[in-house]
Amino acid sequence: MSDILLTIDGKEVRAKQDMTLLEAARSAGISIPTLCHHEKLEPYGACRLCIVEVETRGHPRIVVSCVYPVEKDIVVRTRSEKIDRIRKMILELQMAHAPDSFILQDLATEYGADKDRFEKEPSFCIHCGLCVRYCAEVKKKNAVGFVDRGIRKEISFIPEIASKECWNCKECFELCPTEALQAAYVLIEALISPETSFKPEEDGDRTKGDQDRKARKGLSVLA
């Protein structure tokens, strides 16, 4: 396999054919911010913070570097007014959920993001999926997974597996960009009350507001 030559931020970079733009940039010492990337895991492309501008045949467009394969002779810019503006917005959106995350705070300083721009909904989780993917891809335990979709998407542990596997592992805690708060919280919740949450019929009131969608969807059965 022959190497591929491309230009990143004005620097000529030699990359392996199966590399992504992010890998190529990092191999050349050029940093691109990421939240959902981890070198041991399959590229995921969810946080979109690693966007860069790629120019092919004179047309610049924005691509996501962690999933974009390197191409011969392309010109890549990792910073521009537009990229910075979008990264700032992505950070502001995330900080509505995890305002206290150090990683987010550092990036916010760099990009001038205002952590208070959007109304706070502190759920801690920013859905980077690092815990879920690490548990599945590296540890092969599948103790934690995603549930639901869209703005209701959450992480959730499978109590039977978590009670056996998690206490001695907890490797996902360190990966969490929100300082392990979310994973620890959800895990403990799953371990403390797996039994009570198994039987939604016994709550007595399925329509109660506080049970909200989670109960309606029956999530408590699984969580």
Binding site: G45, A46, I90, H97, F146, D148, R149, G150, I151
Partner: peptide, 21 residues
């Protein structure tokens, strides 16, 4: 769309959450 978004990427999940609000 907020209801139907898969929830994977931030601009869609979080951006639409704010747009809808």
């Amino acid at each position: 769309l907020t209801d139907e978004s898969c929830g994977k990427c931030v601009p869609c999940r979080e951006g639409m959450r704010q747009m809808l609000k």
